[in-house]
Design a protein around this nucleic acid. Sequence first.
DNA 1: TCCATTTACGTAAACGTTTAAGTAAAACGG
DNA 2: CCGTTTTACTTAAACGTTTACGTAAATGGA
Lengths: 338, 338
Amino acid sequence: MVSLKDIAQKCGVSIATVSKSLNDLNDVSVETKERIKQVAREMGYFPNSSARALKTNRTHNIGVLFVDQSQSGLTHDYFSQVLDSFKRTVELRGYDITFINSTQSNGMTYLEHSRYRGVDGIVIACVDFSDPQVIELVNCDIPVVTIDHVFDYRIAVLSDNIQGMHDLVEYAYAKGHRKIAYITGEDTMVTRNRVGSFIRSLEKHLVVTKDEYIKKSSYRNPDKAYMFTKELLNLKDPPTLIMYPDDYSAVGGYNAIRDEGLKVPDDISILGYDGSYISQIISPKLTTLKQNTEEIGKVSAGKLIHLIENPKTTLIQRLVIDGMLLEGESVADIRMYE
Amino acid sequence: MVSLKDIAQKCGVSIATVSKSLNDLNDVSVETKERIKQVAREMGYFPNSSARALKTNRTHNIGVLFVDQSQSGLTHDYFSQVLDSFKRTVELRGYDITFINSTQSNGMTYLEHSRYRGVDGIVIACVDFSDPQVIELVNCDIPVVTIDHVFDYRIAVLSDNIQGMHDLVEYAYAKGHRKIAYITGEDTMVTRNRVGSFIRSLEKHLVVTKDEYIKKSSYRNPDKAYMFTKELLNLKDPPTLIMYPDDYSAVGGYNAIRDEGLKVPDDISILGYDGSYISQIISPKLTTLKQNTEEIGKVSAGKLIHLIENPKTTLIQRLVIDGMLLEGESVADIRMYE
DNA sequence: TCCATTTACGTAAACGTTTAAGTAAAACGG
DNA sequence: CCGTTTTACTTAAACGTTTACGTAAATGGA
């Protein structure tokens, strides 16, 4: 590998001059600077990121922490979309990403791994935010942005679950639904926001939610959703619409409904969440709330880099990203039956 | 950050002794070694990977190159599964992964980016293998493993597309199908293998494939698949079964078939490829060939690390990973009609 | 007991950068 | 023309490791 020394030798100048030239410092005459840059290009020089990192304490590496309950890893739909957008954004700014994990052979905690790799900043998403290791990470002195979870002293980017749920409830209500069930995800901040919004949105219309209409399930778990759907369908007073924590769970719902000999949306209406690809291709097409994963990734990347490059910034922001209701054919208009 | 120097100071020994202790070299007495390790633990020491990389020329970082035609990035189903398995495997061995890309602000090629980050090895998957930048990377002196593509002097891990296609054809043939159409993906090595196997497998049964039964489409493109499906259905002599390049395309097929007023599998049978999650939840369940992504990721990771840690190894291997036929309900048994 | 080997350290150079500090020559102001 | 500033460089230290080499003391063999 060609180093600064090689270029210096070839140009007959000192290493320092080469370094300053390539970094465009105004301590070198324009002519030599150009000459050096030219030679560097010809020799195929690229800086050694390790050496640079060692000296500057900046790696241009961003740590990504993501550990979801269902262990779906990178195949997690929502996360992989957010991450892809995040990745594209930081790459444009000259950063790479490194996954933070604690399963390393040498048993490092998240924070230790982050320090070992010297990441300049960290984005945290979809994890169990009560995990002591996560807490430790959030409390450290490395810039952090969290996604879909709020800490007092950290910038957070949030999918607007409150508004999203509100939109879904309003949609269902407008179609005449009053008996609305909700199969929820695990008890996370996201879930609490959605459930709260669900209940309040209905109360606004003076609809009281029955306890038996709320089922505590898990995200991305079609099997559980299948089971709870059957429970709901067999209630003495079954709901006319079931909301699912995500589109995959909704598919479990479809299956349960079909297995009970019923049809969507004729016999029962359903609503998904996420607006993932699958929602657009199953039949009947699922009405769902598409989260703006592109924007969430982009904004969190932008904010994190800003934080990294402007360390004095102390403004703690809450960035709420709107979703969008995608209308499919999974909800019947039952106003005529009122 | 606590460094070797801090530990040395505290223990009253030299930096070298500390380094050697922590690296378990047998140049230090057992007692001091233990004492130093203890102190290191107490002080929360972790090595600085940049410094170590600078000195040893080993980053314990593996570059991942992946750029698929449809720009689906990390949301690519097959790849994200392979990558997730790959990632888990290398992490157990103390490696992290870094995505190689050329969209960096400072216009580096893949190889330049790899050198800049000093990756110890590279895995290449799902790219356009005729891209000059990819060729450059494959020709470099960094250990490389390719997935689903063969280069003479590089280890390759391959999903057995020949066997896979053979299994599908055999399955279709056994169910009585003789007029089999195939909507293919882009012209890649994977595609050529599948198409070749498709034709040969049929020829073995003395079935000659009509040209009009083979449609050149793209992977993961339900819209194109939709179009070609309609074309096939409207042939004077339409096929009794259509094979798709992947499960997502097959969903496009479902839609086309439904829109033509036909039913799967009563009026037309279909076969997918990949065995992705979606194939298991659409209705009727898709018969498809599940690629063993877990094993592909694991094996490629293992081989790459072996190559990294045993540089003298010169054995060029072809590792072929079997898939598995997942039977759904998308293929009719039409033997009675013969 | 004497010399050779082993043990258990320490010294110092090196990896490729960045950057503060130093310096000689050129430019400038009056 | 002289002192001051500016320009355009160089020197050298530092970042945190690893590792070849040096060395003094301990051990061993005869």
